[in-house]
């Protein structure tokens, strides 16, 4: 039985003037899956994520979120999306609790449901003791948590995280990874990273891109079965190098 696909992306292209930044990317995301988008800096990861969240229009291609075309009905499709950009979009002059209530209202959560929704994400992201603090006074790790909290407050079907663990210390890194794994039980998660260990630690499937093109797309299990003695590390370097030779 085929799993339900929450996100389907077909033949996505994006040009910046002459530069072909994203070249024929097709991907999908099933329910409860964690997909890692792996690539070097400048490979086009952020561009893809901006397109998937409706912040950038693709030059061509289709994006379906839970069966709704993001380009045709952006407002409806965005309701099913939670997005954490590379830099968490936070207002530094607001308190965590105010900010999250605002995010809840922006995502069409009814007035009566705002408080329980905020309490739920505060608990989930371990932010309860900090809830009255000003966001500007928080450490980077906590700001990242608030960023994740705003992305999941409306219980979206699809969560898109752009480099969620960049700049965190090893302990924060562990806790954010655990949070991502926990999220995957109820949501589908897509995250981008250039760190291989991260993919191995949290992802079910990996989609490697290089210079805007797909170079590898499979589950980690399949990958390990095929090439038992090879690490993802080797495959990644090999794939990226072959591309350069071609």
């Amino acid at each position: 039985m085929p799993e339900k696909k929450l996100m389907q992306v077909h033949h996505l292209h994006r040009y910046y003037h002459q530069h072909h930044a994203v070249n024929d990317i097709s991907l999908d995301l099933a329910k409860g899956e964690v997909l890692g988008l792996l690539g070097r800096n400048g490979a086009g990861k952020s561009t893809i994520m901006q397109m998937l969240t409706g912040n950038l229009a693709p030059s061509s291609g289709t994006i379906m979120i839970n069966g709704v075309d993001l380009l045709e009905q952006p407002l409806l499709a965005k309701q099913a999306l939670g997005y954490l950009p590379e830099a968490p979009p936070l207002y530094h002059d607001m308190r965590i609790i105010e900010f999250l209530s605002y995010c809840a209202r922006l995502h069409d959560i009814e007035a009566a449901q705002v408080k329980p929704a905020v309490e739920r994400v505060l608990a989930r992201c371990d932010l309860e003791p900090m809830q009255q603090r000003l966001i500007g006074n928080l450490s980077k790790g906590y700001q990242q948590r608030v960023g994740i909290a705003q992305a999941i407050i409306h219980e979206p079907l699809v969560i898109i995280l752009d480099e969620p663990t960049v700049g965190l210390d090893p302990i924060q890194l562990q806790s954010i990874r655990q949070l991502i794994k926990a999220l995957a039980r109820e949501h589908s998660v897509m995250l981008s990273t250039h760190i291989l260990q991260e993919v191995e630690a949290v992802c079910d499937r990996v989609h490697i891109i290089n210079e805007g093109k797909t170079v590898f797309n499979d589950t980690l299990i399949a990958l390990k079965q095929h090439q038992e003695n090879t690490s993802l590390d080797r495959i990644f370097s090999a794939l990226v190098r072959t591309e350069e030779v071609l």
Binding site: P85, P89, L90, C103, L106
Partner: peptide, 14 residues
């Protein structure tokens, strides 16, 4: 500049 505009542009609003 603060990269916070994405909060609003990613939300379901026109």
């Amino acid at each position: 500049l603060d990269k916070s505009l994405l909060l609003l542009t990613s939300s379901p609003l026109s």
